[in-house]
Write a protein that binds this DNA or RNA. Sequence first.
DNA 1: GGTGAAATCTACCTAGG
DNA 2: CCTAGGTAGATTTCACC
Lengths: 151, 151
Amino acid sequence: MLDATDTRLLAALQKDAHLTAHQLGEMLNLSPSQAGRRRQRLEAEGYITGYAARLDPRKLGLQVQGFVQVHLGTHGPEQSSSFARMVETRPEITSAWTMTGEADYLLHVYCEDLSALNTLLHEVILPHPAVARVQSQIVMDQLKRDAPLPT
Amino acid sequence: MLDATDTRLLAALQKDAHLTAHQLGEMLNLSPSQAGRRRQRLEAEGYITGYAARLDPRKLGLQVQGFVQVHLGTHGPEQSSSFARMVETRPEITSAWTMTGEADYLLHVYCEDLSALNTLLHEVILPHPAVARVQSQIVMDQLKRDAPLPT
DNA sequence: GGTGAAATCTACCTAGG
DNA sequence: CCTAGGTAGATTTCACC
């Protein structure tokens, strides 16, 4: 499926999505045509799902970043989907995962400040009927951010 | 700093970094020149930190995704920086944060399979001299992935 | 806000294994 | 027959007006 050149191409595009076929060709010792063709192939086959701008949360006024672990009390399907809808709706929740084990959720949230985070916790998440308990932690520092996926 | 149009432009570019100035102009009711100019300004002022390709981890053979909470035993600066170096080095660790409270780490990891994750835990992270205890959870499902940052 | 030159992408064409 | 390299038309960007 993927050879070493594909892997390097994917790594390069993860660091900078605006690399031209010419630049990619220089890095990979390929002609611009071949570099562009590989990129097209990797897009068509679904290895590349899209291209996204990376923003600076601080500059947007989002000074506080945290993780919230949510333990559900009732695990019925209608309660879960109601909770999932809430997760979809709230813009402060930028990523959300369901975890093995106690079948709870992990939420990655960005807020303007601590009080906004507390409001989110106590007036949105905790009051939700499916939620039994939440546990939140604030991010102090981000050491690594979406490093290129290993292959 | 930012008006409503800037916010919408940032949201659009987070979903698709390859939108042209012409397309952005249509969305925002701006001329292509003005749309492109706004994008340049937001890049220059640091609101946009870069553009990244989004990959499909499954297609790359990374079937297992998890979070690892690391509690440090010794909180000395030399131990912490040694741990930070290890985090930088391991490609399976794609994101890493330091958290308030017990001053520990949260790691987001991608592995080929469960045994690779266990190897990472028991032969790389746990043996590290600064580490006292780890707690890992596997991701079952990803409901939301890097949704546009709220503003 | 618009215009034009320079650069880029994409599809097509040609050559070589 | 399939893959690599090159070329032309359309599109996009960016500096200038």
